[in-house]
Amino acid sequence: MSSARTYNSIVLVKQVPDTKNITGDVMKDDGTMNRSALPAVFNPEDLNALEMALRVREQHGGQVTVMTMGPPQAAEVLRESLYRGADQVVLISDRKFAGADTLATSYALTCAVQKQGDYDLIFCGRQAIDGDTAQVGPQTAEKLGIPQITYAETVVDLEGDELVVERALPLGKELVKCMLPCLLTVVSTANQPRPASARKRIEYKLAATPLEYRSLLKKWPEFGTEEALDAYLEARDMKLPVWSAADVGIQDGNIGLAGSPTQVYKVNFVVLETAESKEVSADQEGIAALLEELIQEYIVG
């Protein structure tokens, strides 16, 4: 360890539909989405954020806590975080969160971060591939009253209560020095996230939240009851915590739909517009005629 003190990190991650691999059956005829047809993945840049936090821990010591807000199945990204080396994880889940926009989400995350407390650094991915808004990180920083470093690419130095980070700008780099605690949003070029460790995958094979017990009992009927399963996981330190809105001290009206100033007015499915089109034969005459036409129309030349 190179410095006298250690640094605790919180990493905020999100499970997202894999929008890069959308297939035809995902979009229904009425223009709405069939979300269940989309595979859910660990938001790619959140893996870069986790990697940055793990490297800080490896260099300076401290704890890495991963939090996600989402439905019960979002526990999957928490397990994926444990497989990569997170020390502890928390699922923030409540039906009351449904319909949250970025403002309401950042409020819920802020409450959870405050409940956890004792942090020096917060890491988020730059943006999530489902909304591409890049808003929740800065909004959470604002609510916590701490500075933010967006587009963080490299932690250059961490000493005492100060952090030096290189930011990736669209046309260049910026080196900034910031007082702790602060929040970083991490870009994909920051690092190569480590794969899940096979050893940890086995170690955390049983890790589950109570919200998953019902479906786990179908898989492992030998446990019989949720209570028995709970006792078994608890004894092995494999019970993943779930914090509800009440657990993190949330005031209704600030979360879910009611706490979201933005709302969706309408959604249109992108349809291919068939332009009036001409087939051009892929030979020298065809091509020459096409270019002649474009020159005549003053498009070329």
Partner: peptide, 11 residues
């Protein structure tokens, strides 16, 4: 939104 697959109008 959703990787360009839909166009959403937000208010």
């Amino acid at each position: 939104a959703f990787g360009g697959n839909i166009i959403a109008t937000i208010i």
